[in-house]
Nucleic acid binder design. Structure first.
Lengths: 125, 125, 125, 125
DNA sequence: GTGGTCTAGACCACC
DNA sequence: GTGGTCTAGACCACT
């Protein structure tokens, strides 16, 4: 379910966060599903429990997960819509990236092609 | 010429690097132009000389600047083309970003609009 | 593991870089191996931590090491091949050196002998 | 006679030294020839007189030039042989370079080819 | 004056 | 504990 690369420069807890989000977006994880416990996941991934805890906390703050003390961690009710909302914020990131590429003289068509191909993959699924 | 935000999460030296690159791309800085000296810039921006040094060194390694001991720091001969080249590598960044937004169900048209607007600004200049 | 000459004209950080590269080429350091920490190495070599940091950063940029914040510094996956690639660039250095020696009237056989002996040492290992 | 690149990272005085040595080796400058005066050369190359002076001093120390106070600077009597001698010292440089390339697994034939081509150019002259 | 290296010591995020 | 950034102040070689 999770693939951790311990030697990657991107922090382990971030890898867990983004992979969880991806699982929610692809529909593998649905609202109400129970997440593996901090301890079990830490053992399975050979990672420090604190790292898992930090990832779960982050997801809780973002409204993707809902931690219930004494019972476990669950996928929040409207996790999917919450994520779409959060991603919309990333449009500014795309805007500034496009800005820079435009400035560098990279033809517009090349950017469009990137986007087209990303959406084609999606449609075929 | 430079605008530094000392409390930003993005390192000061990186701010200088990216702003310099931007100045080259916009044509404000041209090949052969002399950059402000490490010391003078450090005073003007209220930043430690080592921080400027690090930024200049990074730009030297990337082939944007050419540091000449005892003389100063100059914009490299083919800085513009070098930057275009480096930016092309950022297309993969855009690809993964588009991928995620596609997954989140953000309509393709919204991304296209972002890109169009970035290139329109450019054309009007 | 490292031999530093603090009064040499060649910078300390460069000594660390080249000795690390040598250790990788000789197979003493293998992909995935953990490097000594910045602090521990700085103490062992009686050198400032910043100097070690600079060396490790340089090796990271070159693709020989992979620094993971909070975990340590590791020998990169394809460090060996990366080095072979980088060394091929040094052939131009050899070319200009041979050029000058040819001009100085040093017999070709003397150069060939140098090269032969370098490769003989290698074969015997 | 001299080609100076003021924006090169290699010091100007070193450029003058090496180009002078090259002119001696190629026979353009012969024993007893008078060098241009410090002042005239500094004007012609648009360079600080101190820089020329430093280059001439270095060449004097090496036994290539001979400065005669009040008269000028002349190519030393046995400049050619002196240079051959000095170049022989560079064989150690070639040795260590070959050593590293051998270690990196670059085939011996590639180095030999470099040397052959350098000497062929010489023969044709 | 210039860039480049180094030391000493601080703070941060990450594990 | 780890790597990464930053400050303060020193010394060197080059112009």
């Amino acid at each position: 379910m999770f693939q951790i690369q311990p030697f990657s420069p991107v922090p382990v807890y971030e890898q867990i966060v983004s992979q969880t989000e991806r699982l929610v977006l692809t529909g593998v994880l649905k609202a109400g599903d129970q997440m593996p416990s901090v301890r079990s996941l830490s053992i399975r991934l050979s990672v420090n429990p604190n790292t898992i805890q930090k990832a779960y906390n982050e997801l809780d703050v973002r409204g993707i997960l809902c931690a219930v003390p004494g019972k476990g961690c669950f996928v929040a009710a409207h996790a999917g819509e919450r994520l779409t909302e959060l991603c919309r914020g990333k449009l500014t990131e795309l805007r500034s990236l496009a800005d820079m590429l435009a400035l560098a003289g990279i033809p517009k068509e090349e950017l469009i092609r990137c986007i087209e191909s990303a959406y084609e993959k999606r449609e075929n699924v």
